[in-house]
């Protein structure tokens, strides 16, 4: 996937100035770079250009009044609701179907947000900090699950381990 001539400014601050990006169309790609370099901005720009993608926000954005299972079925057509147990198993939330978000830990809530994004489905997954608060062994297992889905995944995150587990790393450099 290509993005040409991307310019993004927040007031006076220029995040991208006529930049080109080439995003791999397969496997797991880690978008890395220092804080504030524009990782989230690039993900959002990609999402705007590819509405068939599924986007995971940096914040969980869960509905406090919906259960874990309802969060998934809310974004799925009825014909795909049989996939709920598989998706919950992928993010290791099996058994939490009837829990409400406030009954989950921070890491579990993050995994629920990820599960909802996966339940939405799409041509590719754009995941902003999917593993915030998730322990490393679990991160690795979930990454393997994501790889098995067979769709291109672009994710942001921190830590050397993550770089070692993905298929490719795209490093963003600060503007100027």
């Amino acid at each position: 996937m290509e993005i040409r001539d991307l310019t993004v400014r927040y007031g006076e601050k220029v995040v991208f100035d006529h930049r080109d990006f080439s995003i791999p169309d397969r496997g797991l790609t880690l978008l890395s770079g220092p804080s504030g370099v524009g990782k989230t901005t690039l993900l959002k720009a990609l999402f705007e250009r590819c509405p068939a993608a599924a986007f995971l926000f940096q914040e969980d954005r869960l509905l406090p009044w919906r259960t874990v299972a309802q969060h998934l079925t809310d974004v799925m057509p009825k014909s795909r609701r049989g996939e709920v147990p598989d998706i919950l198993a992928l993010v290791e939330l099996t058994g939490e179907e009837d829990a409400y978000p406030h009954q989950l830990s921070g890491g579990m809530a993050r995994r629920l947000a990820l599960a909802r994004c996966l339940a939405l489905g799409g041509e590719r997954y754009l995941l902003d900090e999917p593993f915030a608060g998730v322990d490393l062994p679990r991160q690795r297992r979930i990454l393997e699950g994501l790889r098995a889905l067979g769709k291109p995944v672009l994710l942001t995150g921190h830590g050397g381990e993550l770089e070692a587990w993905v298929d490719q790393v795209l490093t963003l450099e600060p503007e100027g």
């Binding site: 986007f55 926000f57 809310d74």
Partner: peptide
């Protein structure tokens, strides 16, 4: 507004 943005992004 974050929930409303989520609803739009998730095609509610």
């Amino acid at each position: 507004p974050q929930l409303l943005e989520m609803a739009r992004a998730y095609r509610f």
